[in-house]
Simulated assay, not measured.
Amino acid sequence: MKEFIPSAYSKQVESGAVGWQSPSNIALVKYWGKRDPQLPENPSISFTLDACRTKTIMHYSPKIYPGNSLSFDVYFEGEKNEAFKPKIAKFFERIEQYCPFVRDFHFKIETENTFPHSSGIASSASGMSALALCLMSIESELVDSMQDDFFKKKASFLARLGSGSACRSIEGDLIVWGEHDNIKGSNDFYGIQYPDEVHPNFKNYHDTILLIDKGEKQVSSTVGHNLMHGHPFAKNRFLQAHENLSKLQAVLKEGDIEGFIKIMESEALTLHGMMMTSSPYFILMKPNTLKVINKIWNFRNETGLPVGFTLDAGANVHILYPENDSVRIFQFIKDQLVEYCQNGHYICDRIGKGASQLKVKS
C-alpha cells in the first residue's frame, strides 16, 4: 500500500533502544489459507489476550560495516538464538520498501514470552507484532510527526508481513482482519477494531488455556496455510468463514452466548477438519484434547453454564467463558480438566486491550 511507503526521512538518529510488549490473540472465526503477500483467503475475528505476551526490546546503532546487507542479532529469553534469524530476515526483506531504514542500522533484538513458545499459542502473532511496533517507534523518530492512528495501522500492516495473525495483536479487544461486506473498514491489509455493537456479556471474557502439549508443533502454520491451495473443501470453507462472521455480528450485538459458543466451537473443529483432509493430512489434536472437549460438553449439558472451547493450530485448548460465571467454571477446570494438562500446566488469561510501550534505557 502506497500510504505506508515513506518519503525521505526528515530526521536522523544515531542509536537508541525501544521496547514493546504485545499480546497473543485467539481467533473466534479462523484464518486458514493465504495468498501472497500474506493476505488472507477469508476474514477472521479474534479476542486479544492479556497475560500471554511477548516483550521485545530493540537496540539500534549504525552498522560497523556500511552496506546493503541486513545486520541484526536475536536473543530469546537471554540466550542468543540463531533459529529465529531466518524468519526475521525474511520479515525485514518484506518490509524494506515500507521501512527502508532497516538496512541502515545494526539491531540487537531481545525478546521473551510469558508463555511456552511453539505450543499452539500464537507466539508468532505476539512476537511479530512487538517487533513491528518497535520498528514503528524508530520510524516515528525519523519523521517530524506521526498520528497515533497511522502508527497503529502501519504497525498492523507490517506485523501481517511477518505473521498473518500478528496484525490482530496491536489493539484490543475484538479485532477483524480480512475484507467482509458487512463490517465497515475491514480489509485484507491490516486489522481493525471491531466497529459494531458488542453486548456487555462479552466484556471481560476469560480464557483459560490448557497446555495439553507444550512441545513443538509437528507442522508449522505456514505449511498448514499452504496446504489450502488445491484443498478440495477450501472454497466452501472460505464461504463458511464469511457466513459465520455475519452470524457472529448478530450474536455479539444481542449477547447470545449460546450462539457464540456454537460458532466458536464449530470454527475450531472446522480448522482441524481442514488439516485432517489436507494432502498430506495431519492431526494436531492429542488424545487429551478430545477428552477435555468431551468433558466440557458434558459439564455444559449438566449445568447449563456457558463454557465453550476453541483451538488454534495445536493441541492446547482455550476455554472461554464470561465473567459472571467465572467462579463456578474455573472450579470445574481445576477439578476436572487440569489433570489432562502436560505437567498440570495451564494459563489463566482474559481479554486484553492490546500492546503497550515499554520504558527502555538506551
Score class of each variant (00 low, 15 high):
residue 251 V to M: 12
residue 195 P to R: 10
residue 138 I to W: 02
residue 134 C to T: 05
residue 57 I to R: 10
residue 183 I to K: 08
residue 52 C to M: 14
residue 311 L to Y: 02
residue 204 N to F: 13
residue 36 D to P: 08
residue 248 L to S: 13
residue 110 E to M: 07
residue 6 P to L: 11
residue 180 H to E: 14
residue 27 A to D: 05
residue 50 D to G: 00
residue 71 S to I: 08
residue 170 I to Y: 06
residue 184 K to A: 13
residue 185 G to W: 13
residue 6 P to T: 10
residue 347 I to Q: 03
residue 137 S to T: 13
residue 210 L to F: 11
residue 154 K to V: 13
residue 319 I to Q: 00
residue 16 G to C: 09
residue 111 T to E: 01
residue 252 L to C: 12
residue 229 H to G: 03
residue 174 L to Q: 04
residue 266 S to Q: 14
residue 88 I to R: 06
residue 62 P to T: 07
residue 7 S to W: 02
residue 172 G to E: 10
residue 283 I to K: 02
residue 189 F to M: 11
residue 19 G to L: 09
residue 236 N to H: 15
residue 38 Q to F: 04
residue 312 D to F: 03
residue 177 W to V: 10
residue 282 F to D: 01
residue 255 G to T: 14
residue 317 V to Y: 00
residue 331 Q to E: 14
residue 302 E to I: 04
residue 24 S to R: 04
residue 359 K to P: 00
residue 128 M to Q: 07
residue 298 N to W: 06
residue 298 N to L: 12
residue 1 M to T: 13
residue 263 I to W: 11
residue 325 D to S: 10
residue 358 L to M: 12
residue 128 M to P: 00
residue 145 S to W: 06
residue 119 S to L: 06
residue 136 M to K: 05
residue 26 I to K: 04
residue 3 E to K: 15
residue 196 D to I: 09
residue 23 P to C: 05
residue 69 S to P: 00
residue 230 G to N: 13
residue 300 R to W: 10
residue 59 H to G: 01
residue 240 Q to M: 15
residue 317 V to D: 01
residue 109 I to R: 03
residue 198 V to H: 06
residue 120 G to T: 01
residue 232 P to V: 15
residue 32 W to D: 02
residue 81 N to F: 08
residue 67 G to H: 11
residue 150 F to L: 12
residue 228 M to A: 12
residue 167 C to W: 06
residue 86 P to S: 08
residue 152 K to Y: 14
residue 74 V to Q: 02
residue 326 S to L: 06
residue 339 E to H: 03
residue 136 M to P: 01
residue 359 K to W: 09
residue 280 P to Q: 08
residue 188 D to S: 08
residue 162 G to P: 03
residue 259 G to L: 12
residue 34 K to Y: 11
residue 71 S to D: 14
residue 89 A to V: 05
residue 253 K to C: 14
residue 102 V to R: 02
residue 99 C to R: 13
residue 286 K to R: 14
residue 188 D to Y: 10
residue 119 S to K: 05
residue 138 I to S: 01
residue 5 I to M: 11
residue 48 T to Y: 06
residue 244 N to I: 08
residue 352 G to D: 10
residue 248 L to I: 14
residue 323 E to W: 07
residue 318 H to I: 08
residue 94 R to L: 09
residue 306 P to N: 04
residue 190 Y to V: 10
residue 18 V to L: 01
residue 261 I to W: 09
residue 57 I to Q: 07
residue 183 I to P: 01
residue 273 G to E: 07
residue 44 S to W: 05
residue 112 E to G: 02
residue 214 K to V: 12
residue 277 T to D: 03
residue 289 T to F: 01
residue 97 Q to W: 01
residue 62 P to L: 10
residue 315 A to L: 00
residue 21 Q to S: 13
residue 333 I to H: 03
residue 257 I to E: 10
residue 217 K to S: 01
residue 319 I to M: 01
residue 57 I to M: 07
residue 243 E to I: 15
residue 212 I to S: 05
residue 27 A to S: 13
residue 58 M to L: 15
residue 355 A to H: 10
residue 151 F to I: 12
residue 321 Y to D: 03
residue 283 I to G: 02
residue 137 S to H: 03
residue 311 L to N: 03
residue 172 G to T: 09
residue 346 Y to I: 09
residue 257 I to L: 15
residue 352 G to W: 09
residue 138 I to L: 07
residue 26 I to V: 15
residue 55 K to I: 12
residue 149 D to I: 14
residue 313 A to L: 03
residue 335 D to S: 08
residue 54 T to I: 11
